[in-house]
Nucleic acid binder design. Sequence first.
DNA 1: CTGAAAGCGCTAACAC
DNA 2: GTGTTAGCGCTTTCAG
Lengths: 335, 335
Amino acid sequence: MRVTIKQIASKLGVNPSTVSRALSGKSGVSDRLREKIVREALKMGYFPDMTAMGLRKGHTKVIGVLIPDISNPFFAQAVRGMEKIFYPMGYQLILCSTEENSEREAANLRMLVSQRVEGLLSAPVDSGGNSVIYRKIHAEGIPIVFFDRLIPDLKLSSVITDNEQGIRDLMEYLHRRGHRKLGIINLRGRSFTGKVRLRSAIETAEKLGIEIRQEWIKDGNSTQSEAYEATVQMLSLESKPTAIIVNNNLMMLGTMKALRDLKINVPKDVSLVGFDDSYWNQIFDPPISCIAQDPEQMGLIAATMLLDAIFHHAKPVQTVLKAHFIERESVSVIS
Amino acid sequence: MRVTIKQIASKLGVNPSTVSRALSGKSGVSDRLREKIVREALKMGYFPDMTAMGLRKGHTKVIGVLIPDISNPFFAQAVRGMEKIFYPMGYQLILCSTEENSEREAANLRMLVSQRVEGLLSAPVDSGGNSVIYRKIHAEGIPIVFFDRLIPDLKLSSVITDNEQGIRDLMEYLHRRGHRKLGIINLRGRSFTGKVRLRSAIETAEKLGIEIRQEWIKDGNSTQSEAYEATVQMLSLESKPTAIIVNNNLMMLGTMKALRDLKINVPKDVSLVGFDDSYWNQIFDPPISCIAQDPEQMGLIAATMLLDAIFHHAKPVQTVLKAHFIERESVSVIS
DNA sequence: CTGAAAGCGCTAACAC
DNA sequence: GTGTTAGCGCTTTCAG
C-alpha cells in the first residue's frame, strides 16, 4: 500500500500535521525534527498525494490541453512550447486529442473540468459547436486560452497567426513573379483557418488582379489523402492555374506526392507555395517557398497568457502573431 | 464557486448520499427522484470532482505517459494509439516530454505518482539512469509498460520493435543488390535502440561479408542537424561506402538535406535506406526504401497491455513487434 | 428507498 | 515548536 503522511507520523511518534509542515517546507518545525522526518519519508518511499492536496488546497497544478490531431507536427510543437513554460513551474499537462470531433471535444472538456484543471489551452474543433460548454467553463472561473484557432462569438483569450497577412505575402510574391492564375488547396471549408485564408485569398486576388476560378478552389479537407485527390483533379483541368497555394503542412505532403506521380515539374510546369513550414518543405525537390508560423512560440505565448490569467486574473487578450515568408525554389518567373 | 453534490442535495432537500447514488447510476433511488436530481444537476452546471472521487475510491482514471520528444512524429503517433484505447474507457493521459533528460524523467515520474496515475507508459530516457525509481514505482503497485525502448535490467512489461530483424532485412536487401560497403548514421551511441541496431549491423555485416569501416560509423545523435554533419563527413572521405543506413526518421531529414546540398545523387552516387518510415520518405526524390515500424500500433498494444495489468494484474510481458521492409527507389543495383 | 456518519490524505486554523 | 481539530467533495457502509 501507499505510504501516507500518517504512517510516517506514527512511526516517528509525532503528529501528521507536523510531518506535513516539515515535508512542505513550512516554518514551525525544529530543524532537527524536520531532518528526521524528511529522512524517514525518503526511506519509506513517500510520494505526496496531489489529489488529496488538490482537494484540500483547491488547486491541482494540472493544465488541460486540447488539440485536434497530435500526429500533426504543428500541434506537437505547440505543446512543446507549452511544456517549456509549465514544466519548470511544476505543472502537468493533460493532453487530449479531439480528432476534430465535437463530441469528443465536449467529452474531453467535461473530463478536464472534473479533473479540476486550473486552466485550459485549446485549439477548438472547427465546427465551433461547443461554445456553450466553453462559456460555462469560463463562467466557472477556469481560464481558457485558444490557440491557432478561435471561436468567433467567444470573447476569450487567444493566440492566432495573422492569416490574412500570410496569404497576402504569399500572393504578392506570386504576383511579382508574374503569376496571374492561382489555384488553392484549401483546408476543410468550414474551419476557422480555412475560411479566413480563403476569404483573404479572394480579396487579395481582386486587389492584385489575380484570377481564381471557382474550379481552382479545392477542398483538401486538411488531410494528405484528400489534398492528393484535389491536386490531381485541379491539374487535370483543361485550363490550369500557373501557381498553387497549399493551405497547410499535411496537405502539402499530398500535393507533393500527386505532383510526383503526375510527373509534373515544379516550378517549370506549375509553381507551388505553402502555408506552414514543416520538416519536409526544405527537402522536397525543389524546396518549397512558404509562409512559416512558429508553433512552439505560439504554444509558449498561449501558456504564458494562461499563467497570467491563473495568477493575476488577467482580462482576456487577443494576440495575433506575424508569420514570415521563406523564399526557396518552388516558384517560377513568368514574363 | 463550483457546484457540489451537497448544494444539489440541499436545494432539493435530500441527502448528499442520495444525490451521489442518483448521479453515479447506482441502484437504490426511485426513478422519479433520480430524474429530478439529474435534471437539477444539469441545470446547476454540476461537474463531478474527480480528485475527490479519486481520493475516496482510490483510483483516478489517469494514465501517465512519458516520451522523450513530442515533436517526433514517431512518438506522437504512438500516443495516438494509446488515446484510441484509453479515450473510450474514460481515462485521461498525462503526457510528459522528458527531452531525453534523466532528471526531467525522474521529476516527471515523481509527479505522476503523486498525481496517483493508475499506470505508466514510458519510452525511458536512453541513459537508463532511473531504474531505481521505476523499480520503486513498480513496487508501489503501479503497473508500467515500456515502449520503443526498455531498461535491460528491469524485467517489466515492454513493447519494442524487432530491431535486429529490421537491420537484417535492410542489409540483406542491400547485399542482394550488390552492396558490400556500408555506412551507418547511428542514433545516439548510448541509446538502447542505437546500441541494438549497431550491434546487429556489425554482426550481420560479418555474416554477409559486408564491410563497415570504423570511419563509416557516424553518430548522428538522433538529431537532424548532427545527422547532416555526420553525412557530410562520411561522404567527404577518401573511400566511401556505396550505401548508407540512417537509423531513424529525424536523422533521415538531415541526411537528405546534406545529400541535396552536396549534390550527391541517390541512388546513382550512393544508395540510402532508413529505419522508420515517416511522412517524408515517400516524397523525397527518389522515394526512400526503409524499414517501417508502426508506432500507432505500438502505442495501442502498450496501452492494451497496461490495461491488462491494471485490471487483471497480468504478469509482466515482453512483446516484440515485427517491422516490415518497404521497397522504393533509393537503392541502386551494383553488378 | 433514503438518511446519517465515517473517512480517503492532506493542510490550515487554532490551541497549548 | 508541536498537537488537535475540522473539512476539502465524494462514496460507502450501516441504520431506519
